Simulated assay, not measured.
Amino acid sequence: MRFTKDHEWVVLDGDVATIGITAYAAEQLGDVVFVEVPEVGRKLTPGDGLAVVESVKAASDVYSPLAGEVTEANTALTGQPDVVNASPEGEGWFAKLKIADVAAFEALMDRAAYEDYLGTL
């Protein structure tokens, strides 16, 4: 699992990256009440909006940390947005992307580096 400074996590399985938000991000948002996931087939570059999350506190964009094409979206979140709070780094994932650049994944923070980064906030 790798992480971004925007509090997204990425797990790579071959050339497919699963993306979600970290437990820290879910905690900061509070109770999630709405999730909009991307359409399958959508092409993304790093920094593009991947998903929208609304909570009782705020609405936030989730950004794609990698370039790729959406191969699967977690549409279950549309009807059960609270899964993002219950399992942010598991069942609360947003999308899967087929990526071409595995080196971009390797360049993201590992858990230890992300934990260190959280200590600076």
Rank of each mutant, 00 (worst) to 15 (best):
V52Y: 02
V53G: 08
S55M: 05
V56Y: 12
A58N: 11
S60P: 01
S60D: 07
V62M: 06
Y63S: 05
S64P: 10
P65L: 10
A67N: 03
G68W: 00
G68V: 01
V70G: 13
V70Y: 03
E72P: 04
E72K: 14
A73C: 13
N74W: 05
L77C: 11
T78C: 03
G79T: 11
Q80A: 13
P81D: 08
P81Q: 07
D82C: 02
D82I: 11
V83I: 15
V84G: 11
N85F: 05
N85R: 05
N85S: 07
A86R: 13
S87V: 02
P88M: 09
P88S: 08
E89D: 10
G90T: 09
G90E: 14
E91S: 15
G92W: 03
W93V: 05
F94T: 01
F94K: 03
F94A: 08
A95W: 01
A95F: 04
A95Q: 01
A95V: 07
L97W: 09
K98S: 11
K98W: 00
A100I: 02
D101A: 13
D101W: 01
A103Y: 00
A104P: 01
E106A: 10
A107P: 02
L108P: 11
L108S: 12
L108C: 09
M109C: 01
R111F: 03
A112R: 09
Y114N: 10
E115A: 13
D116Y: 00
Y117V: 04
Y117R: 05
L118E: 11
L118C: 11
L118Y: 00
